[in-house]
Amino acid sequence: MKIFISLLLLALSLSPAMAVEPSEVLADPALEQRAREVSVGLRCVVCQNQSIDDSNAELARDMRVLVRERIVAGDSNQQVLDYMVSRYGDFVLLKPPLKQATYVLWFGPPVIVGIGVLVLIVFYRRRDSAGVEVVEAVPAALNEKERRRLDALMKDDG
């Protein structure tokens, strides 16, 4: 147990490995914080599924530097993102924006889940009503022919 707790503490104490190099970090911690927030939302266009904040690619590094330059020059976070989108398109944003072209992307999954739930409700309702009928149907009693056959078999055995 002690080992488990110490391992857990160790894991919690580790900060995720970031690609930001010490030379890139801005002197002003508030601006650096904003640069990090912006970088986390920007895709490294070379490596595709990493943000520029944790990519070691050279182009990602140059994009991080550019983000910081723009923030120092007085751009708001949104202005920096807008600049990147104007160069690379929405693709550069790791979280796609909500607009007409992305409606299917954003609303597709909930709609499909909704349809699934509807299908389930209909299915169970039908099955339940069918189940009631089955319970009511008592097996028919033996007819004359069957009873004679059963008697014969019992006698044979005895």
């Binding site: 266009v45 070379v46 182009l59 140059d62 994009m63 550019l66 690379y88």
Partner: peptide, 13 residues
Amino acid sequence: PESKAAIAFGVTG
């Protein structure tokens, strides 16, 4: 050397 123009052109490779 620092991708200034490359980023302005939206270059990925």
